[in-house]
Design a protein around this nucleic acid. Structure first.
Length: 530
DNA sequence: ATAGGGTTAG
């Protein structure tokens, strides 16, 4: 009897100490003191239980010490479902879906462990926006087979999966099946409807949901922006009670995206007056607006605003400045700022090369390209669009041809529509119409309006009747009343003294005169934000 | 001890 009592007492003491040990370890981890936590853990091997192991593993993941987390996991005498989930969630937060996948397989194959809701919520959410997303319906099947209920976490993750897979019905079905929906599944539903372009369904969900939070409003507004409904977006944006930097920036960005630069800049001014402080996302977006508006005056004001705000000029911000000055016509200032960028990345190089290209400074564009290669940055498709564009506008036919070919042979990049359009323009301007024709005929996809337009323009420039008709025909198949068709053809016919054999060309010409596209200077007169 | 939504650069 006394022996039994002693045993019970010991047990109680040891249980208490284990709880205390866990508490102490956790408080060390909470303070970021992993070393102390580990020391304590190692010093009391007979007091550690599975909770302390799991805590330490989670702690190592939190501070990105994957090696130690994996080491401890391997050393564990027993693992429970929390141990596995901790590993999955650690890998998920480290953006390592590959390891999530392997760990999930391992858990089910050898772990003799039944996955729970948390397992699925973590696994599914790691597979979003990736090739792994095709596993998501299978995981859904497994959830059903195991009789696991669709709680808000699993449900929301699954909904996002179906959005990813463009499965409208999957999305709606999962939403219906979620038990005790809180605000998140509703938000995801709005997100999905907006992604599918169903703005009125999204609006209806917004109207009928029982509770809304900040994300609900953001999701609705961003959805309207995505669907080009700027007025709706703005009207909800104005009704939003607590706007933060992100919502302001998203709204400003929306205007920039659709070319309404002045509205973007005015909204930026409202933002400053509202007391919300811009961050580098905002500044970068606003500089984009200045660039689009081609107003170096506004750009200067924003530049001054950035300097005054004491905001650190990082690569992104400096690149936006380079782009802004280049697009506003001040390529020399753009270059000065470019030289200030300490660690130039691909986008920074592309900006300056693009700037030179737009200014017709082909040699300098190519020179910067060489520098870029020397610094070990690999060019991408955009780099080559800029380079070919530079050669096009600088009249460097041979060089353009060489660069275009090296893109494919030396860098393994695929020529896209814009590359072809530039090359056609390049050959066309130089009068090498046959080469342009050959390029068009050899394209792996159907030429678009820009390609045909460039070719047709070249035919007009060099008054080539036969190819001009070929080009006009190509353009006509895409757009029946493209004004360039009649303009260019009538010029060629005039030059060649050929009678129009297109029925009603004169009538069409008259129509063209009335619908002629408005031309405007790229550089607008400076104006202030008001 | 492990879990979920919105914004950058060409």
């Amino acid at each position: 009897m006394p022996a039994l009592r002693t045993f019970a007492l010991c047990r109680q003491i040891s249980t208490l100490s284990t709880v205390n040990l866990n508490k102490t370890i956790n408080s060390f981890i909470g303070n970021g003191n992993l070393e102390e936590a580990r020391k304590l853990f190692d010093q009391s091997p007979n007091l550690t239980n599975i909770v302390s192991w799991n805590s330490l593993i989670a702690g190592y993941f939190r501070y990105n010490n994957f090696r130690q987390a994996e080491y401890l996991f391997d050393q564990m005498p027993h693992r429970d479902v929390v141990s596995w989930n901790t590993m999955l969630s650690g890998y998920r937060n480290a953006n390592n879906p590959d390891k999530v996948y392997k760990c999930f397989l391992h858990m089910n194959r050898y772990g003799d462990m039944r996955p729970n809701e948390l397992t699925f919520s973590v696994a599914i959410s790691s597979f979003l926006h990736l090739d792994f997303k095709h596993l998501i319906p299978q995981l859904h099947g497994l959830v059903l087979c195991l009789g696991i209920s669709l709680n808000v976490f699993v449900g929301s993750a699954l909904m996002r999966g179906y959005i990813d897979l463009d499965d409208y019905r999957g999305l709606a079905r999962v939403f219906d099946e979620i038990l005790d929906k809180d605000v998140t599944p509703w938000n995801v539903l709005i997100l999905g409807y907006m992604k599918f372009g169903c703005t009125s369904e999204a609006q209806r969900a917004f109207d009928m949901m029982p509770r809304r939070n900040f994300f609900t409003w953001s999701t609705l507004i961003n959805g309207y922006i995505e669907n080009r409904k700027l007025n709706e977006a703005r009207s909800f944006f104005d009704k939003m009670s607590e706007k933060d930097v992100v919502s302001w920036t998203a709204m400003i960005r929306g205007y920039v995206q659709y070319g309404d630069f002045m509205k973007a800049l005015k909204l930026f001014k409202l933002m400053l007056n509202s007391g919300t402080r811009p961050n580098h996302f905002t500044f970068s977006t606003v500089l984009d607006a200045c660039a689009g508006h081609s107003s170096v005056l506004l750009g200067n004001q924003v530049h001054a605003c950035i300097l005054k705000s004491g905001f650190p000029l990082d690569v992104v911000l400096l690149t936006s400045l380079v782009d802004m000055y280049a697009k506003c016509g001040d390529i020399e200032v753009a270059f000065c700022i470019f030289e200030l960028i300490p660690a130039r990345n691909l986008v920074a190089w592309n900006s300056i090369i693009g700037g030179y290209a737009r200014h017709g400074l082909a040699e300098r564009a190519i020179q910067e390209f060489e520098e870029m290669l020397k610094s070990g940055i690999r060019p991408d498709e955009i780099t080559f669009i800029n380079l070919v564009y530079a050669c096009d506008h600088g009249g460097l036919v041979k060089e353009g041809e060489r660069i275009f070919n090296s893109m494919v042979t030396d860098y393994g990049l695929k020529a896209e529509m814009e590359h072809y359009a530039c090359m056609v323009d390049l050959y066309g301007r130089a009068g090498q119409l046959e080469k342009a024709e050959k390029l068009i005929k050899g394209m792996p996809f159907k030429p678009d309006v820009v390609v045909w337009g460039a070719f047709l323009g070249a035919c007009g420039l060099h008054s080539c009747l036969e190819l001009g008709e070929f080009a006009a025909n190509g353009l006509y198949t895409l757009e029946h009343d493209h004004p360039a068709v009649y303009a260019v053809l009538s010029k060629i016919y005039g030059d060649k003294g050929v009678c129009s054999d297109i029925t009603g060309l004169d009538k069409l010409l008259k129509k063209w005169r009335t619908t002629k596209q408005k031309a405007g200077s790229w550089i607008e007169s400076p104006s202030s934000i008001n």
